[in-house]
Design a protein around this nucleic acid. Structure first.
Length: 274
DNA sequence: AACACGCCCTGCGCGC
DNA sequence: TGCGCGCAGGGCGTGT
């Protein structure tokens, strides 16, 4: 599924297709439950005009002129696709929106870990899914001091800590391994044992790796694609993710894998050894 | 509070 | 060829 760079790529590619267009009709294609059910009053977005497409963490927020926000999360396997007016629903299509430019915005999600929700603009500050989210990696609040303060009492492995959405959003399993490699920090190192300069380096590398991935259109493993079905290319630039048994691109040591919090974690034992 | 773990699902690739 | 198993980009709820 998409991490922040993939969601951001989707957001950007949506802009010139749906902005300022009117939602003519919403269509529930299946009644299957996603992470939560599609709201019963989802028809509230019909006849509204799309004013902007924003992102918070890995959520897309489509803001409408009737003060209602459409919120979409893609979970592990969710996709948004744009298809023209004679589109015919495909397997795992769950929901679609027909626009006044004859395009359909389709939500497809085989594993159904994603979600579709709505929230009044006035209630966004109380919106439960956003309430406990940590800082955005591209915001000015994402400082070294902020991280040091958050890491202070964390004995857990740093890899789990940077994936903790209550601290920092947008860093998923791929970019956690990648940013730790770039920072030469072992994934198992307890968060509270990082030195000041390591935290600073990690912060910079998180920003850099996410930015780089966005510039490459995200990473396409298995079936991720943008709204036009196009793949991203950042997966070709991975230093460690998915490279177990291959040689480190820096020191030629063998890339190792371990499991942390149930998720595969890749690292170079030689480069990340402090 | 912090942390370990299980679970929500389908699909794919692998070994046998 | 077919089966069972493990694993997959996320995030929440539960228990200790």
């Amino acid at each position: 599924m998409p991490e922040l760079p993939e969601v951001e790529t989707i957001r950007q590619s949506l802009l010139n297709r749906i902005l300022n267009h009117k939602i003519i009709k919403v269509n529930r294609i299946t009644n299957l439950k996603l992470k939560q059910h599609i709201p019963i009053n989802i028809e509230l977005i019909e006849r509204a005009i799309i004013l902007s497409v924003e992102r918070r963490s890995k959520y897309l927020i489509i803001k409408l002129d009737n003060k209602v926000n459409l919120i979409i999360h893609l979970g592990m396997s969710g996709k948004l696709l744009i298809k023209d007016h004679d589109y015919f629903p495909q397997k795992h299509d769950h929901f679609s929106i027909k626009l006044d430019n004859n395009l359909n915005l389709i939500y497809n999600d085989p594993r159904r870990f994603g979600l579709i929700d709505i929230c009044d603009e006035a209630q966004m500050n109380e919106y439960s899914l956003f309430k406990n989210l940590g800082v955005e990696p591209f915001s000015s609040n994402f400082t070294t001091d902020y991280l040091i303060n958050k890491f202070k009492n964390k004995k857990q492995p740093i890899k789990l800590t940077i994936m903790d959405n209550n601290i920092l959003v947008g860093v998923g399993n791929i970019y956690a391994s990648e940013s730790l490699f770039l920072s030469k920090i072992p994934p198992l190192k307890p968060a509270n044992q990082l030195l000041h300069h390591e935290v600073d380096l990690l912060r910079k590398n998180i920003i850099n790796v996410l930015n780089n991935a966005i510039m490459h259109g995200g990473s396409s493993l298995k079936d991720y694609s943008n709204i036009n079905g196009e793949k991203g290319y950042f997966q070709n630039n991975f230093y460690v993710y998915g490279r177990m048994g291959q040689n480190c691109k820096i020191c030629c040591s063998e890339i190792k894998k371990l499991v942390l919090g149930g998720r595969s974690t890749f690292y170079c034992h030689n480069c990340q050894n402090n």
